[in-house]
Design a protein around this nucleic acid. Structure first.
Length: 296
DNA sequence: AGTACTACCTGGAGGC
DNA sequence: TGCCTCCAGGTAGTAC
């Protein structure tokens, strides 16, 4: 679901197309997705210009300015969140786009529906939509442009792909503790950005059982794990994210990484290395898949 | 302090 | 066909 590679795919897609837009009308559908802010705080962003898009872990940070004021719109996609952008030139009517040849069905961003919890119209006529059927996503408005300033952000460890392989290995040693390797990878205060899919993929690539106690890993195993984390996240970004059901990039396109996954959602199917059946179970309260032969 | 577990939420899949 | 139950999972909060 939206983990670091998916959020990075959204961020880079927006950075290229939506930077410079000026917000005009901000309409909240379901206030439950707002955290520590009100619909009024959102509508007060009218007139702010989008200066850049940043990301830390699974959080998208939309940097806004108006005269001396700086704000950050923080977006977390939860499990099923979609944050899409439709440029003014892509005039659409109920799922259709007007082209020179007439109206044609669009494969682009979704149209507003009962799962659309925030719509942001821009002065240019462009539009952002935040859609999230399961409503695990959250939106916050913060003063300033920091990477801290709210408990959610203050708790985060370093962004996973901001670390070198050796720094990541050190981090895993210092913050490993007496819990499963998978629990450590999922702990956003250790490392920000890894979720259930990439945790399983990283453990497989490092040939480490996800239920191994982290503090008992050898040095070489930690190094393999650090390398694997960076590798699987890098592949995910290169493939524009993993789409199982809901994830789409800012332009509405699905990611291509699902076909590159080696263990996630493949319990019972043959291991791509040894051909023995993959095991499935619960580790750190999450559905987990691993190869009992290849991962020790 | 560190670790473990549950509530939140909905759509889709599977059983009968 | 339709109803029911179960499952997915990121995070905060609570329990131990």
């Amino acid at each position: 679901m939206p983990e670091l590679p998916e959020v990075e795919t959204v961020r880079s897609g927006l950075a290229g197309r939506a930077t410079g837009e000026i917000l005009e009308s901000l309409v909240v559908g379901h206030p439950g997705i707002l955290e520590d802010c009100t619909p009024r705080d959102l509508s007060d962003l009218s007139g702010f210009r989008i200066e850049r898009f940043d990301r830390i872990g699974k959080y998208l940070l939309v940097r806004l300015s108006k005269r001396p004021a700086l704000r950050t719109l923080v977006v977390h996609l939860g499990m099923s969140g979609q944050f899409t952008f439709q440029a003014a030139t892509e005039e659409s009517v109920e799922g259709f786009v007007r082209m020179p040849s007439g109206y044609v069905k669009t494969k682009g961003p979704p149209e507003p529906d009962r799962h659309t919890h925030l719509a942001m119209g821009c002065r240019s006529g462009a539009r952002f939509l935040f859609r999230d059927p399961r409503r695990f996503g959250r939106i916050l408005v913060l003063d300033g442009w920091g990477y801290t300033g709210h408990p959610r952000l203050d708790r985060l460890g370093p962004d996973a792909i901001s670390l070198s392989e050796s720094a990541l290995a050190v981090r895993l040693r210092e913050r490993g503790g007496s819990r499963a390797v998978k629990a450590v990878l999922l702990d956003q205060s250790v490392l920000a950005g890894v979720g259930n899919i990439y945790a399983d993929e990283a453990c497989f690539e490092a040939r480490i059982r996800p239920d191994r106690i982290a503090s008992r890993l050898t040095g070489p195993a930690r190094t393999r794990l650090a390398r694997a984390v960076l590798a699987v996240l890098g592949r995910g970004i290169a493939n524009a994210g993993t789409t199982f059901r809901d994830f789409v990039a800012a332009d509405g396109e699905a990611g291509r990484n699902a076909e590159d996954l080696r263990v996630y959602a493949r319990a019972g199917e043959p291991c791509l290395v040894c051909s023995r059946p993959l095991s499935g179970g619960i580790v750190a309260t999450r559905g987990t898949v691993w190869c009992p032969h290849c991962q020790k």
